[in-house]
Design a protein around this nucleic acid. Structure first.
Length: 699
DNA sequence: TCTCAGTTGTGTGA
DNA sequence: TCACACAACTGAGA
């Protein structure tokens, strides 16, 4: 190739102009022409779970129609990531824009190299497992076509591969490891300003055939009310490479008030930084999960997900703000609870994923994920060893619990409010995520964390494979965290933050008029109080069709119905802790052959949860099955016990309390026959107290 | 081998 | 509001 470079800048995880090392590298080539493109990848359209809210946040220009009362905090406008970026590009060069090409990058890029006589392709590094595979293919095609490839890190503070290298080649599994590794790598680079001009794009005439993707399997069918037509023409319906429209995607209406785009992201960051004490003293654990308008945390995570806000920009602006605060003689918050700490946690999960690849998002094959015989386990493809997207209904009771959890009908108002907020807004506070994740897995339902992760994948605006998988493993106590005896109560925990229940009243409107005393335990309210609040606590949260998707029953006279709790929480907590204790003693990890071939069952003779399996309601238990998958060596971790511990809980103990009835709320963990190391506990107790008043964002 | 810390638990009693 | 006990995990570091 002679003459000036002709460059494709491939936008992916970096929908911004500010602080983009990759974009800078492209412009440093002093190109003759620059094609800013986005490949409309069928992997995300059909194979990854993406709900309407995240599609809107990515691309779609529609006016804000809902939650008008929140319009001051979430300003309306024709914004969102791709549209905003495209407009910003055009502002710098009226001939340019974001050119959205509707085909898989693996097939269309080689054609574009030829059609547009490209010399270089530049993009931001993406270490997600699918992205790595895809990019390797692109790099190979580029090589064959004589096109130079430039890849730059910009999605995380540190290059995840560098982080892993600095961690001895191992996945980063603790914040301490990240801090040590980061020290070896050096300081996070200062952000780069946005370019002031952009080169012209070259001729964009395209006379090439389109490779249309296969629509099947299409796991996003459920997100659409119309037909998906985005692949009808390579350059879009009017051949202008436009950002896809809602109708083109056939999507159901979005419901969130959170909106995307670099313009909004930078404005939000300015607003946060302008509040010096908030920024400098931000401490995640002391931010209220019940605050919703406005939320207590920054809600910048969706912007980081789409790359509309650089993490390095937040890092440095927060760091500088904390430094200025310190210079005034005041004490800023520290890692890991401060804003910088939140970004380090994000890097930790990216480091873990970079090292473990596809296996990081599942149990089977994951050398760092404990095996727990959860209910509703994923089915595994024997050929790839990867999850297929479907799961085994190991128990109809647990499937019912899962559906009730997903649709906010558990009968626990705190859990239901959070799940409804998640579906409506695409965002919930980090501690809210803790609460619902703990409840679904080790602190209530004993259901596979992969089920919960899939729901979050579908509904979260800020869904990041690495962070989502990592957080679910953390909360399920299968990796990163092991204190499974610390369990979130759906009653005590929210009471601490929001005793009046404003959050619940907003997202579970049928309980709006419930007395404060019963807002987190409505089943305890006398019928007279229920009638006065125009809401009866009865039934199992089914809709008229007998499912969980449709509207809840409303009885004559505007009397609403809110479901009874689906189990006795204290009882379930006890069962789950015993189950986890047993699974820890068995000590299997996801890469163990016995996990892959199903012979783990011999180590759990009493079933998933032990002899008390099934809980209070005593529904029919199905048989676990259908897993298996490719054996890839490995085994039990050295030093881990494989002895089975007596699960020791009397079945009658659990049958004793009626579902939804009055419970004593006593500490199930207390055993008066045991004398404990008092001196040691004294110290630990003090520290625990200190943590609670410490304070902290890892949405 | 031991000690102690670990972003974000709960309930009780002073 | 605070300290402590509860039951007991892993990983880092001495």
């Amino acid at each position: 190739m002679t003459g000036k470079p002709r460059v494709i800048y491939w936008f992916r995880t970096d929908l911004r102009l500010h602080d983009s090392p990759a974009l800078k590298a492209a412009l440093d080539l002093k190109p003759e022409c620059l094609y800013p493109i986005w490949c409309w990848d069928p992997h995300y359209v059909y194979r990854a779970r993406v709900g309407p809210n995240r599609w809107q946040y990515l691309c779609v220009e529609i006016p804000l129609e809902i939650n008008k009362k929140k319009a001051d905090f979430f300003p309306p406008g024709r914004l969102d990531c791709q549209s905003d970026l495209s407009k910003s590009i055009t502002k710098l060069n009226s001939k340019s824009k974001l050119f959205v090409v509707r085909e898989a990058p693996q097939t269309v890029l080689p054609k574009l190299f030829k059609a547009w006589n490209i010399s270089h392709i530049v993009f931001e590094k993406d270490t997600d497992a699918y992205a790595r595979e895809r990019d390797e293919k692109i790099i190979e095609s580029a090589k064959e076509a004589g096109v130079k490839v430039i890849v730059k890190t910009g999605r995380t503070l540190y290059d995840p591969d560098e982080l892993v290298k600095a961690n001895g080649g191992k996945p980063t599994m603790s914040i301490t490891q990240v801090e040590h590794a980061a020290k070896k790598i050096g300081e996070v680079p200062r952000p780069i300003p946005a370019p002031e001009s952009l080169p012209d794009p070259g001729d964009t005439t395209l006379d090439i055939p389109q490779d249309r993707p296969s629509q099947e399997p299409d796991i996003n069918k459920i997100q659409r009310s119309g037909s998906e037509t985005s692949y009808n023409k390579l350059a879009g319906p009017d051949s202008s490479f436009s950002v896809p429209t809602y109708s083109e995607l056939g999507l159901k209406p979005a419901t969130t008030s959170h909106r995307g785009g670099e313009t909004l992201a930078l404005a939000a960051l300015d607003r946060i930084i302008a509040n010096e004490s908030y920024t400098a003293t931000f401490s995640k654990p002391s931010t209220a999960p019940t605050a919703f308008s406005p939320p207590a945390t920054t809600v910048l995570s969706p912007h980081h997900h789409f790359g509309s806000l650089s993490v390095r920009l937040l890092y440095w602006r927060a760091t500088d703000t904390m430094e200025a605060y310190r210079k005034k003689g005041k004490q800023p918050s520290t890692i890991p609870t401060n804003l910088v700490g939140q970004l380090l946690f994000r890097d930790m999960y990216f480091g873990a994923q970079a090292a473990l690849g596809y296996a990081f998002a599942q149990t089977v094959g994951n050398s760092h994920c404990r095996f727990v015989p959860w209910h509703l386990p994923s089915t595994i493809s024997p050929s790839t060893g990867l999850t297929t997207g479907s799961y085994t209904i190991s128990s109809t009771l647990h499937e019912t619990w899962f559906q009730r959890w997903k649709h906010g009908r558990t009968g626990f108002p705190w859990i239901d409010a959070l799940m409804r907020q998640l579906r409506l807004e695409g965002w919930i506070h980090h501690l809210g995520r803790h609460a619902v994740a703990c409840f679904l897995t080790r602190g209530g339902c004993y259901i596979d964390w992969e089920r919960g992760a899939a729901v979050f994948e579908e509904w979260l605006l800020d869904h990041e494979v690495a962070c989502n998988s990592g957080n679910w493993q953390w909360l399920a106590c299968v990796a990163f965290y092991a204190q499974f005896y610390r369990c979130y109560s759906p009653v005590a925990f929210p009471k601490k933050w929001d005793p009046a229940g404003a959050f619940v009243r907003n997202y579970v409107p049928e309980l709006a008029a419930f007395p404060e005393k019963y807002i987190y335990e409505p089943w305890r309210a006398p019928v007279l109080d229920q009638k006065k609040a125009k809401c009866l606590v009865k039934g199992e949260g089914r809709d008229r069709e007998g499912g969980y998707e449709g509207a809840l029953w409303e009885e004559a006279g505007g009397m609403k119905v809110y479901p009874k709790p689906m189990f006795d929480f204290n009882e379930r907590r006890g069962i789950c802790i015993e189950g986890l204790k047993n699974a820890y003693h068995v000590g299997l990890y996801g890469d163990d052959d016995r996990v892959k071939n199903g012979s783990w069952r011999e180590l759990f003779p009493d079933g998933a949860e032990g002899p008390t399996e099934g809980g209070a309601s005593g529904d029919v238990e199905g048989k676990m099955g259908e897993e298996g998958g490719k054996a890839r060596g490995a085994g039990i971790k050295p030093g881990k016990s494989t002895k089975r511990k007596n699960v020791g809980m009397d079945e009658t103990e659990h049958e004793a309390q009626e579902l939804g009835g009055e419970t004593k709320g006593g500490d199930h963990r207390t055993d008066p026959t045991k004398k404990k190391k008092t001196k040691k506990r004294k110290l630990q107790g003090t520290l625990d107290g200190a943590f609670r008043h410490g304070g902290s964002e890892k949405e």
